[in-house]
Design a protein around this nucleic acid. Structure first.
Lengths: 116, 116
DNA sequence: ATATTATGTCGCATTTTTACGACATAAAAA
DNA sequence: TTTTTATGTCGTAAAAATGCGACATAATAT
């Protein structure tokens, strides 16, 4: 409580952080890649392809689903999960803007205005 | 027992997840944006611009520094933090590849091969 | 020399994440 | 019907993240 902190975080910062958090575990990165590599939506045997217990994988799936990055459709006894490519495209844009601003830092990286 | 199974994933998946984790908090997103917006590297008054205690901000700075996304150079009594734009460029590429593969999912989004 | 200031370290409490087994449920097969 | 199978729910334990105050340190300023 050294200083007055008036500034809150913007909606954009929170949104980017939320998505980043969703991708902040290799299992969830792997799940997205797995779904991207299938011509047909695969079901819970996603778990069989990952070095984790089925319930743990299910938990990760739920986290991705909570952000609507993936979707699940029940098909009889199995469930078909697939990517929400539309949302992913938006998210990709957000990350791009973020990185573009970052790499375009006027300080220019390896220490032009300071010693870093 | 809860053992981190992150080692069972590919190096690429782990690297992407690591960086995603670094950006998984709005404060750290804000820090990167803040550093990107400065023509000169700013020091610890980063804390004054964020709605968090100084030590908490310092902690976030350390996390970004641990991944070498930012760097700090001591200048007398103050410290000059700035972005590692070179690394950020690499990271940007990794995220781009990831998203490109994801949005290019053959299932094509809104349910072409399944009901999602 | 003493005080001030910017930065960094430590410990602690709270919350969230991760991981998994035991159990429940509902569709399909026997 | 009974059994099998794929999926989902719940509780729990360990770990990590978050946030902050008390204290330490080192460079200036007085």
């Amino acid at each position: 409580m050294t200083v007055a902190k008036t500034t809150a975080f913007t909606a954009e910062q929170q949104q980017l952080a939320r998505v980043a958090k969703a991708l902040a575990h290799p299992a969830r990165v792997a799940i997205v890649q797995l779904l991207a590599s299938k011509t047909t939506c695969i079901s819970g045997d996603i778990a069989a392809e990952l070095p984790l217990a089925r319930t743990t994988v299910f938990q990760h799936l739920q986290e991705l689903k909570a952000l609507d990055l993936i979707r699940g459709e029940i098909d009889g006894l199995t469930v078909c999960y697939c990517l929400n490519t539309e949302l992913l495209r938006q998210v990709q844009q957000q990350f791009m803007s973020f990185f573009e601003t970052a790499v375009a830092c006027p300080a220019g990286g390896a220490g032009e205005s300071c010693g870093c």
